[in-house]
Design a protein around this nucleic acid. Sequence first.
RNA 1: GUAGAUGUAGCUCAGCUGGUUAGAGCAUCGGUUUGUGGUACCGAGGGUCGUGGGUUCGAGCCCCAUCAUUUACCCCA
Length: 455
Amino acid sequence: MSNIKPAIPKGTRDFSPSEMVKRNYIFDTIKSVFKKFGYQEIQTPTMENLSTLTGKYGDEGDKLIFKILNSGDYLGKVTSDKLLDLDSNGLTSQISEKALRYDLTVPFARYVVMHQNDISFPFKRFQIQPVWRADRPQKGRYREFYQCDADVVGSESLLNEAEFILIYDEALKSLGLTDFTIKINNRKILSGIAEIIGKPELIVDLTVAIDKLDKIGLDGVCKELIERGFSEVDIDILKPVILLEGSNTEKLDKLKQVLGSSEIALKGISEIETIFNYLAHFKKLNGICELDITLARGLNYYTGAIFEVKTNEVAMGSIGGGGRYDDLTGVFGLKNLTGVGISFGADRIYDVLLELNLFPQNTEETTRVLISNFDSQAELFALPILQQLREAGIATELYPSNAKLKKQMSYANDKKIPFVILIGSDEMAKNVVTLKNMESGEQTRIPIQDLAKQF
RNA sequence: GUAGAUGUAGCUCAGCUGGUUAGAGCAUCGGUUUGUGGUACCGAGGGUCGUGGGUUCGAGCCCCAUCAUUUACCCCA
């Protein structure tokens, strides 16, 4: 048998014990904030029907869905023209009917429609599960990563939007981040801009181009706009909007002037104002949220507010995003149900916290006490002690063989176990144990009945 | 999909304009210490130099191909 090289697919990772401690710290922190705001947890399957996912994420997104090959003789039913024509797209639908989930929002929409009779609206759910994207991996980008989503469906109140900003703020601050920006925009404003130019059909091109402002600058954006079908005249109208500056209120006032003739834009502006007004009433939260008209976000289904969170302390893509989608459940047959939600990118947050050294030091969860195993007699003598400590709620283990003491001590040291109990013939005769503090090196003899009190 | 970078020990890497037997640190194991880790000292094991071809008296180093990893673009968390 040939040796196969141990490897994992690119863009995936193993998580070792010390990493899991840190990851769980992030999940637990976010989860507790979600719960505090009244969200309940659900989970959905790793696989969805391919038809559930396709068409929801745009053309680019569809390409990045991991498809699962049908079981059995998957070529048996393929019509030969698809094979002979080398028609990959046509072939895919015939040999794959399942796919790995691409995000948590679309499966959630599917969930809501399937369980609509059991749900009382507004329904606030959170979900922390991995998602998969067939992207080229790079810094901060993985093919398997966790999202932490909170969504509410069945409520059009903009209070939800305001609360999501509070959730972002509280969760990220709890994780120790201090300098981050929560950006907000509204898809309706973007639609209004496209409308005023008279090219509503180019809204996607418009948003994709102006989204790159901070990356390629104004000249780059103008160049891209022209490539995407806009004229010099259009750009003259766009410029003041793209280069909007000042406080949120100043920006809003300016937008009202420029976009005043567009009903939809005014609606979007008014929504933002309402959200800011809610935020103002949550005191202490002045200016945590910044209106950014260049914020576009790729996903097709957003219709109202759009959020994005970036840290300013580390070069990293966005660590969270979200928005309102008015009709996500419509394609599954449930009309007129609006939703809004946000997502935390746990893996990117992990990378950020690691780089900033923000993980708490004492998150090492390990054994408290190791009982050494000197010989078979001591091993049996140790068993009731082992049980006694565990019953007292102390994480305790007995070294499973009578290896050299040096080896056993190294084991305790490597595993950062703070206490070691030594039991030899002398201790057994006197019904005591020797307790060693691994940090100070100090050793004391303790009567067995007093042992549990020591920890 | 487009472009660049890098593949040498379990890990991180060094290896000169091509020249004897390819090195270091860390990790592992053993010893100094048969009842003591973390520190110190001594020692050991571990390498088809990614793979295949070519140039050369001679290739880890040069050339070509191929695979893998990685960074950036597109797009995204």
